[in-house]
Write a protein that binds this DNA or RNA. Structure first.
Lengths: 254, 254
DNA sequence: CGTCGCATTGAAGCCATTCAAGGTAGGTGG
DNA sequence: CCACCTACCTTGAATGGCTTCAATGCGACG
């Protein structure tokens, strides 16, 4: 099956190149999506600044939103009062999908940065979708992608020890930037240690220690004095570290 | 705002009743959905038995599936070999959403019981949706609901100690049955302790101990000798237990 | 009857949390 | 400008919850 020389050559292509090509393709898809949205019936543009709340849990659902620039976090609160960061959103991501089924937003969407959001009335979007299958496909792909991403989060929390979880979080953030054509070797965390810990299911002290350890072995470097800006010299090395954390004693189901 | 006597009376209605009404409504929605699907262009019906694989991760995406009867589990495997149960599916649930964005299934769907699956070609479904907005709404609501459910899982894993997580898992399962009009006070777990533990991010021993503790305080009872069938005399009591696990020292963000 | 898979339970050890102390950056007002 | 405050981060030490390792029990099946 893999014996064809042509295929073997293709596989032998340096993975860095492949990664870069993937990122460029992803970046193009996001640009296409945004162009598509811009051509949609009156997208309502809105500038936001760090801390701005786009919508709150419980508010009636009217609009879906697409992030043109900036970064958002999603926060939920359970009936018994537990709070949880349940997602991060970057350029090209949609916000509000979780509101569709109940007609009310299911979480708070809070800006972590200055940015621009495009909001679309859901009913109008549906009409536009009926006429433009490509738009419909984009919406479905986005929802599908959100489901996949959520599962990745669950897997990370369920299977990785604390250090690897933090490393995986940084990798995810860097990947998200790379896919959007931004430099990924240098990231500005816009969350406190407490928020990161909440997102990853650990305490702020554990996050702090994990970051210190990663810095000690040079997998990351702190750029600023406040230790919020982090350089990742080699993402591949981070990924290797995550795998090493699993240990040789990998237990599988079945 | 809540001073109206009429509203006060409504609120004073026993919560059990309200819960029951919710369940009935949910049950009706599911019945409607299935009727809607049945009216759709050639839904392909298929009987499955425990262990049958509906689709595998990596296989080309062609169909979405709706579960008419039975229970499924979803399994993913990360690039570095970690395995994870990422979801459970009951009557009326859709399978395959996560495949849309990449054109390939992102996980394995494995039957845990005999049941019947209705499969729909995605391209045909889209055409049908364009003509029947209600069908489109149902699809979107289902995807939205899956996103919400995934976040609940994440919250459970991130914020609850082991015992409460197992209790929450049982509560979720019972709720899922109740919403479908099935008796919820008695559930047959179709997963091994290892699978439950994997889904909840803990070891099989911890699951076993948690169940033993829950049984010791009479929150659950084992029905069969194999300890796979579990009775839940009072779901409310389970919920109270989960809250008590949080302890009075609740820490919030901000 | 023996084996295999799954579940339970105990004991020891470890990783993450908890508790506590101290440090740094940034903002405010004197 | 400095003192002060607040919010955040870091680090150490002790505790505890979960995991790991190991032994045993139980039921199904050939």
């Amino acid at each position: 099956m893999f014996s064809s020389p042509a295929i073997a050559t293709a596989i032998a292509t340096p993975p860095v190149r492949a990664q870069q090509r993937d990122d460029e393709a992803a970046c193009q898809r996001i640009a296409d999506l945004l162009a598509q949205i811009a051509a949609t019936p009156n997208p309502q543009r809105r500038l936001v600044r760090s801390g701005d709340v786009l919508y709150q849990a419980g508010a009636p659902f009217t609009h879906l939103h697409v992030l043109n620039t900036g970064i958002f976090k999603l926060l939920t609160r359970s009936a018994d009062g537990r709070e949880q960061v349940v997602g991060l959103k970057f350029r090209g991501d949609w916000l509000g999908f979780s509101a569709i089924s109940r007609g009310r937003y299911a979480c708070d969407a809070v800006a972590m940065d200055t940015g621009e959001v495009w909001s679309l009335r859901y009913d109008e979007l549906l009409k536009a979708c009926a006429q433009h299958p490509a738009l419909m496909a984009a919406v479905h792909a986005a929802m599908s992608g959100e489901i996949m991403r959520d599962r990745d989060s669950l897997m990370s929390v369920c299977t990785l020890p604390a250090d690897a979880r933090v490393a995986d979080f940084l990798r995810y953030w860097a990947d998200s930037l790379a896919e959007r054509g931004l430099r990924a070797d240098q990231i500005r965390l816009r969350m406190t240690r407490a928020e990161i810990g909440n997102y990853l299911g650990m305490t702020l002290e554990t996050v702090s220690r994990a970051l210190s350890r990663l810095a000690r072995v040079k997998l990351i470097t702190f750029i600023d004095k406040g230790r919020r800006d982090i350089a990742i010299p080699d993402v591949r090395a981070l990924e290797d570290f995550i795998q090493r954390c699993l240990g040789p004693t990998e237990q599988l189901l079945h």
